[in-house]
């Protein structure tokens, strides 16, 4: 039996009284590459933010490898939705990636040579080394996404949460990113990705969670990625033309 990396119990979250997530139970085994799918407004981003303690749930708890999230922070890295920050902020690509080291540095201490080296390595991994001194406002959408990914890689975590990393990226970047994710899985890491393109789910992921306010289903893609669950999640009678 593999270990459970992330365990969510009875999680309920609301913005101003209207519940957005309802009584979610979820167990994510170690070492999976998991997609979270569901229609817009299903609460996918909210789920990730609640797991990471950015939002405070009304009820429920989250544990990482059996201990509360607060004690296991350093094991977890987060790639927010690209649109959540102001890309006109005056800073460079390298600077943003360096932010990934701030957590282990703690208060006040400045990043030094060692941190810079780690950031440069991460930039190289995502194929952005040539852009290290570029202003972030002058990067394309795909490049900005790679920078975000590099920032998470620097954290050297065991569990990665990514919110729509394929949003608005070109085909080359999509392949580059998925290859990095598969590498992470190979290294035994757990990767959880909010994903929109249902077509690519069987090709990219080995585990999937269907979400629409409630959890519809969770498990191996080959067992549960079917029309029945898709219809339950997306409402309409869903016929996927997905070749398995």
């Amino acid at each position: 039996m593999t270990k459970i990396a992330v365990k969510v119990d009875d999680l309920t979250v609301a913005y101003n009284y209207k519940p957005v997530l309802w009584d979610i139970d979820l167990e994510i085994p170690e070492g999976v590459l998991m997609a979270i799918v569901g229609p817009n407004g299903a609460g996918k981003s909210t789920l990730i933010k609640s797991i990471l303690g950015i939002l405070k749930p009304i009820a429920g708890s989250v544990s990482i490898y059996g201990k509360p999230y607060e004690k296991q922070r350093q094991l977890v890295a987060y790639v927010p939705q690209k649109g959540s920050v102001d890309w006109d902020f005056p800073t460079t690509a390298l600077d943003v990636v360096m932010m990934g080291t701030y957590g282990s540095l703690g208060w006040i201490k400045r990043p030094r040579q060692k941190e810079k080296k780690a950031a440069l390595e991460a930039l190289e991994k995502v194929g952005m080394l040539a852009f290290k001194n570029r202003q972030i406002s002058q990067l394309s959408g795909g490049q900005q996404q790679r920078i975000f990914l590099a920032r998470a890689l620097v954290q050297n975590a065991s569990i990665y949460f990514m919110d729509e990393p394929f949003q608005g990226v070109d085909a080359t970047t999509e392949i580059a990113i998925i290859n990095i994710l598969k590498e992470l899985r190979k290294a035994g890491k757990t990767v959880i990705v909010v994903h929109h393109d249902l077509q690519t789910v069987p090709e990219y992921f080995d585990w999937v969670t269907f979400l629409n306010v409630k959890k519809i289903a969770t498990g191996p893609v080959k067992d549960i990625f079917n029309d029945d669950n898709l219809t339950k999640t997306y409402g309409i009678n869903y016929k996927v033309s997905i070749q398995k």
Binding site: G53, R73, A77, Y78, P80, S84, V85, F89, Y102, L105
Partner: peptide
């Protein structure tokens, strides 16, 4: 300086780092 900068750029992420 470092804390101000990261908070201004990405507050949610800053929180996940434990600040």
């Amino acid at each position: 300086w470092k804390e101000f900068k990261i908070l201004l750029f990405d507050a949610d992420y800053t929180k996940t780092l434990g600040f």
